[in-house]
Design a protein around this nucleic acid. Structure first.
Length: 597
RNA sequence: GCGCCCUUAGCUCAGUUGGAUAGAGCAACAGCCUUCUAAGCUGUGGGUCGGUGGUUCGAAUCCACCAGGGCGCGCCA
């Protein structure tokens, strides 16, 4: 042990770089120093880490970067953990670290376990991550699934980076879609109790037609019949008093749809800290209140929008509307808040909802949306900007692109009308929760994804989920075998002599492990949970590489009966690898496996 | 027509927010192998980062324009 418990070696070296810089060039402005980075090198011949410090400050210091770099290299070479430092290229300083310094990170990892990599950049700032928020009008499908997994992993990632995270779901239970749901459920009810109407007749008599024809509403009809008999029925729809049945049907349908969604989320391993109801917000007058607030700020007016350019919608006509001055905050056009019947647009309610999140203390709001909502990004950001004032509250929006499902090399067509869309439950049954979650995180969220079912369950290196789990299982296997002969608890391993860990493949693995805290920071900063999946894939690759070396060269195997000290050192390395893999999988919401079967 | 996202090896994709000679898997090619946990291993070849300009010490990354793909475009959420 070196005595340091510094987890993030990059941060540690960066502090040294800044100190050395300050000694040479005092009075550099903070915003210049902020750009100084210490990063891992791409090429191992460049050492372990590199800093761009000389390049970044050269202009301000009005000295040549290579001159500063050379001086910096000399200063850094004097540090105990630096074996060698040299100026390279246009002014980089490459740092070759003492192997003992890198190895010393292993007991830190053992001591921290899965908590290794927990960061402080979040500084306890309250972050609200809103995701899924699927309309409660039917079961979740694969499109929702990606947003669900990305949002959940992002929330976990931010929590690991030290933010105070709230996971939240907005139930869109206020709009016309829920009315349509009620009418659709009522039709199923009429079917159950018996009706002379045909489905087409029914569809003609209700506003908007029959929008949800899915069989999943039959259960709603059955429950209504069981609980209310025929008392909700009306002889003819013309003289029906919707008051008689509408509220009851809507409540029952909504509750059952939300129950189904909660079950689906549970199967995916997702639990929200809070469910908010749009209807409840409206009932409390939150929307009216926020519109009042904006009116007070002079940001609301009655006006007529320019018609959209290009081909007009066929029913377009100039009309005066209640508009929010979104253009004052970077949007392209001002946006309507009221429908012509006087009710609120979804946007108006969403402004109220975001105001509510801010009122509850959210400093950073993150919404995870489907790409089809991309057109709403700038208006929502504009609204938050208007309301945030000097509270510094911000809104980030993560868009998830379309997921196409492939099976047997064929695109699985998804169409609600044809009834062939894949539900989340179908996918979970076919692939399994962990493989679904892992696979959903193997692409940047704003890139389209082909979800290949065959690959997601394949037992080959092409399947990142398998490859990473396999690495973890191998670690656990080694530890089980070792446990028969020695104490492999973290406590018992903390004082192991690690000096025998000097093989290049071992050092590569150690470097990767030591970069985990920085990976967490970077991924959290970028709001990109997929980076965790790629990191784990690379880490698994390093480990498998080491394992495979042991095939040809038996002296590289982890367990060496005649060399207990080396064995202990390698057990430390294996245990640390397992801990970091678990740490990463925990962010992704994937359960590590102990053995492959 | 306008706005946003995307375009990187034959294929599927990364690329540490502007850093050094752009990486990985699959496929291809060449060897090895029947296992400390099996569902292989090692190595090689492969690139005008869609195109053209610009910004600067430095661009796959930022800006402008162009080409192709996706999404959206006043009372759907």
């Amino acid at each position: 042990m070196t005595g340091t418990m510094q987890e993030n070696l990059f941060a540690e070296l960066r502090a040294h770089v800044l100190a050395a810089l300050a000694a040479m060039l005092p009075e550099l402005p903070a915003e210049v120093l902020a750009r100084v980075e210490v990063t891992a090198t791409k090429d191992e011949t460049h050492g372990d880490m590199a800093t761009n410090a000389a390049l970044v400050v050269s202009k301000q210091a009005s000295r040549k970067p290579q001159e500063i770099g050379a001086a910096l290299a000399t200063a850094l070479a004097a540090l105990p953990m630096v074996d060698r430092a040299e100026m390279a290229g246009p002014g980089f300083v490459n740092l070759h670290l003492a192997p003992a310094f890198l190895r010393a990170q292993l007991p830190v990892i053992l001591a921290r376990g899965e908590a290794y990599g927990d960061g402080s950049i979040g500084a306890g700032i309250p972050v609200n991550v809103e995701y899924v928020s699927a309309n409660p009008t039917g079961p979740m499908h694969v499109g929702h699934c990606r947003g669900a997994v990305v949002g959940d992993a992002l929330a976990n990632l931010l929590a690991k980076a030290g933010f105070a995270v709230t996971k939240e779901y907005l139930i869109n239970d206020a709009g016309g879609q829920v009315t349509a749901l009620a009418y659709a459920a009522y039709w199923r009810y009429l079917e159950v109790i018996g009706t002379s109407l045909s489905q087409d007749d029914y569809a003609e008599r209700i506003p908007g037609g029959l929008q949800y024809g899915g069989e999943y509403l039959i259960a709603v009809g059955q429950r209504l019949a069981a609980e209310h008999g025929a008392t909700l029925a009306t002889a003819t729809l013309e003289n029906a008093e919707p008051d008689l049945w509408f509220e009851t049907v809507r409540e029952t349908a909504l509750a059952m749809m939300m129950d189904g969604i909660r079950e689906d989320l549970e199967l995916l391993g997702i639990r929200f800290d809070r469910y908010s109801s749009e209807r409840e917000l409206v009932r409390q007058g939150a929307t009216d209140k926020v519109i009042d607030t904006l009116t007070g700020m002079g940001l609301i007016y009655e006006g007529v929008l320019e018609p959209p350019k290009g081909k007009l919608p066929d029913d377009w006509e100039a009309r005066e509307q209640t508009l929010f001055r979104a253009t004052s905050f970077g949007d392209d056009v001002d946006r309507p808040l009221r429908k012509s019947d006087g009710s609120n647009t979804y946007f108006a309610n969403d402004i109220a909802y975001h105001a509510d999140k801010m009122a509850r203390g959210a400093q950073i709001m993150i919404d995870v949306w489907g790409a089809d909502h991309g057109g709403y990004v700038s208006r929502m950001k504009a609204a938050v900007k208007a309301l945030a004032g000097n509270s510094n509250a911000t809104l980030d929006i993560v868009l998830c692109q379309i997921v196409k499902v492939l099976k047997g090399g064929e695109l699985v067509r998804m169409s609600k009308r044809a009834g062939t869309f894949i539900t989340l439950r179908d996918l979970l049954e076919e692939v399994g929760r962990d493989a679904v979650r892992f696979t959903m995180l193997t692409r940047k969220s704003d890139a389209q994804m082909d979800f290949d079912i065959d690959q997601a369950i394949a037992q080959t290196r092409e399947n990142p989920n398998f490859y990473v789990q396999y690495a973890h299982a191998r670690c656990r296997s080694v530890l089980r075998a070792a446990a028969e002969k020695m104490d492999v608890s973290p406590q018992a391993l903390l004082d192991a002599d690690l000096s025998s860990l000097d093989n290049p493949a071992e050092m590569t693995l150690i470097r990767r492990l030591a970069s985990w805290p920085r990976q967490v920071e970077q991924a959290a900063f970028a709001r990109e949970p997929h980076r965790i999946a790629f990191f784990l894939y690379d880490l698994a690759g390093d480990f498998h590489m080491l394992w495979n070396r042991g095939r040809d060269d038996t002296t590289l195997r982890f367990l060496q009966d005649d060399r207990p000290d080396e064995t202990r050192a390698r057990i430390v390395l294996v245990a640390a690898t397992a801990a970091v893999i678990r740490s990463g999988l925990a962010i992704m919401g994937v359960a590590p496996v102990e053995e492959m079967r």
